[in-house]
Amino acid sequence: MAPHTEQLTRSAAVQLRGLTRSFEDRTVLDGIDLDIPAGQFVALLGHSGSGKSTLLRAVAHLDHEVVGSGQLTAPERVSVVFQDSRLLPWRRVLDNVLLGLDGKEAEQKGREALAEVGLKGRERAWPNELSGGEAQRAALARSLVREPELLLADEPFGALDALTRIKMHTLLRELWKRHRPSVLLVTHDVDEAIVLADRVLVLDHGRIGLDLTIDRPHPRSYRDPLLGEYRERLLAALGVTEDHK
């Protein structure tokens, strides 16, 4: 955690007050206020360099060397899914899922988590025997097995092909429904945000430019015309004007 960041008393799952982070003399996050209620699925959109990863890393306490101020509360159990699966190549899949845990009970949970993400039977495989999608499933299992109150995902599907990504969207949504952690999903993909999240934030110049609640039932289809409105509002907030005539 960056210095000068006090812990707030715990109420909402995530609470940010005046969160500021800067690199050199460039302010990346400029006094962000944000509450994420427990169990909410939030997507964070923004251009590259808009500070969305910085925000996620701050919440994950991964920004030791970054100058910053403000107040931040996050739950005890936080899991992070990175863009790369970040599996240790010298540990078998199950041992990767169990990284940092030990005991028979943990192993049982690890097996269940792998089954949940559709990797039953691959427990003894080496990470470099997995496809990109499978590796990312294993990474999801690794984050699930700790029963997180908050799941942080930094463009977790960015490196996957389009078909695999759609399957992963369904999987992530299912897992969320079953375990109900709060989710903060960082993405640059507007459609991904709309299909998955109940609330979409747009980060612009270090501030939250748009906070949009998407009140549509799940599962959502990419072709749902009603989602088009949300898309246009989000694209406008991102400074993209769509010319579809």
Partner: peptide, 15 residues
């Protein structure tokens, strides 16, 4: 990246 992972997974220094 593995250092970050270890932090996220809450590994101790020895682990």
């Amino acid at each position: 990246r593995f250092v970050e992972l270890a932090e996220v997974q809450g590994l101790s220094k020895v682990q």
